[in-house]
Design a protein around this nucleic acid. Sequence first.
DNA 1: AACACGGGGGC
DNA 2: GCCCCAGTGTT
Length: 386
Amino acid sequence: MRRKLIENQKPNRKNIEAFQRSLLQWYQKNKRTMPWRDIENPYYTWVSEIMLQQTRVDTVIPYFLRFIEKYPTVKDLAKGEDEDLLKLWEGLGYYSRVKNMKIAAREVVEKYDGVFPKERKALESLKGIGEYTAGAIASIAYEQKEPAVDGNVLRVMTRITGNHGDIKLGKTKKEITHGVRKLLPEENLGDFNQGLIELGAVLCTTAKAPDCEICPVSEFCLAFEKNLQGALPVKGKAMKKRLEKKTVLIFTYKEQLFLRKREERGLLAGLWEFPNIKGHIKEEALKEILEKEQHLAEENLTVENITRLEDSKAVFSHIQWNLMAYQVNLKSSEGPPEGLRIKEDKNYLELPVEEVMDNGRWIPREEVRKDYSIASAFKAYRKEVL
DNA sequence: AACACGGGGGC
DNA sequence: GCCCCAGTGTT
């Protein structure tokens, strides 16, 4: 018979204490090794928690190590360069995270003298720290009695309690958070919250059937008792992606590539990309445009050849880009090359389609590799020319 | 409450 | 091809 944590609307203290012991014991024995784990450094906790938002542990580890090497303390980070931070984040996704981190770092330095606050409310007021992350930092770094409910905990707890609410809804999350709060022990708050999370990550999984046979808390689990593991958690349908066609233009001139910087807001904010335009255009049309292009002529640049590259796809959470691409190799039409004749104040090329070359510049391949974050959406082409 | 916001890995 | 991931900010 299942041991109930709540009976007749009331917490069953004895069972709750047994649950806490089982979970803690399991966690302390089985927890995975992570570079930020079991180090008392709220800055590390914060960096890791931000990186772990919607991102797997294995992906995060190398990013985390590079990050703390370059920015060992929150004070170092507060002085960080945007372009450098973006480079450190390249490929991790959700780039507003790192932008918000710098804002938060400055606030921690100015308002809290470089020490992260320990109160949930104070943590939540920092940019990029929401309900989950505040609870995680408060409990892991400071042993505060606060819940930390992420996707793992939602899965574990809907199963344990048999909650059939849609976990995408705020209502369900609120119920679960409330439930977790009542389960919190008086000590080992960080381990308890991480135990719940770890359980969801390694045993109480969705993609694969959960490994209930070795679960430390299966005796408290309603889904286990009634064999509802496959039915829980309930999650609403994912949003449909909208499709966008794009033509990518990869201009090369000797050792240089033409890149442009994306807007500071919106998708892939501030990252670099190859110029691209809406829709798919044919090679003949492209040739015609390029031959008439005034600025190319002014720079004594002519098209040496055009190669159609392989189509590729970039999938985001809400959009899909269907990409076609041309590599356009340019040459100097005049005399022995003196390098590209582009002056400091005039390093823009303009095609009739204005957006194509906006915010762009020529950059030597070597610099691109070292210093520029190009959106992974273009990785097939980056590989082709870098 | 709904949507914007990435990229990789598992099945 | 679909789903998921140690979520948050904006509208």
